[in-house]
Write a protein that binds this DNA or RNA. Structure first.
Length: 200
DNA sequence: CAGCAGATTGACT
DNA sequence: GTCAATCTGCTGC
């Protein structure tokens, strides 16, 4: 399977990238195990001008510093003190855009995912939601700042994403972002069980 | 330095 | 439907 190179993540249109990532495969090789899934839900965060972004207004902290790296790096942060949320840094250096991966359809290593998620049944909750899929793939904050080449990387999907199934909506959980909370920067595959609600 | 809210999830009423 | 879990970083005393 063709690995996506860093050039792909350096291009400037983060909204286009968020759409284009649907159908691509996210792979991790952590603890000697390969786990992977097909991306079915993303959200774009447009850096300094976006009130919902951690980098709004050019904010820099130890946590957000990785978003200022060139596209193609991982940005992982802890939410509510418990959940590790995986983002892909996009765009040129010092433009802190990122794309949050919110839903995955499992492809490889389902048994390993079930162990990590402490689940006896492989239902949609295995990799639905940003905290869930990061746990299933073994991704934590210690992977933040890694280039997406060896431990975590992306490949082209087996089949092309069907544009007729593209759904678009405001982002989830960003009500605090005032008028930017209404921006339709969430993209998903309509009707897919591994998309958080609303999924139509 | 205390208080609070957050790009969430899962357990429980 | 409600609510607790618990780390990061912002606000204000």
């Amino acid at each position: 399977m063709q690995i996506l190179k860093q050039d792909y993540f350096l291009q400037a249109d983060t909204l286009w990238l968020a759409k284009d990532l649907l159908g691509k495969i996210l792979v991790s090789q952590i603890g000697g195990t390969i786990t992977s899934g097909r991306i079915v839900e993303t959200e774009a965060y447009l850096g300094v001008a976006d009130k919902a972004s951690h980098a709004f207004g050019g904010r820099r902290t130890a946590r957000t510093e990785t978003m200022y790296l060139p596209g193609g790096h991982a940005y992982v942060y802890l939410c509510y003190g418990i959940h590790h949320l995986f983002n892909i840094v996009t765009n040129q250096p010092n433009i802190p855009h990122a794309i949050l991966i919110r839903g995955l359809e499992p492809v490889e290593g389902i048994a390993a995912m079930m162990l990590r998620r402490k689940k006896k049944i492989a239902d949609a909750s295995l990799t639905r939601g940003p905290g869930s899929l990061a746990q299933a793939l073994g991704i934590t904050t210690r992977h933040s700042g890694l280039l997406l080449t060896e431990t975590i990387w992306l490949t082209e999907g087996e089949k092309k994403f069907d544009p007729g199934l593209l759904g678009q909506s405001p982002r989830i959980g960003v009500d605090y972002a005032a008028e930017d909370a209404l921006l339709p920067f969430r993209f998903f595959e309509k009707g897919n069980a591994f998309v958080t609600k609303p999924n139509r």
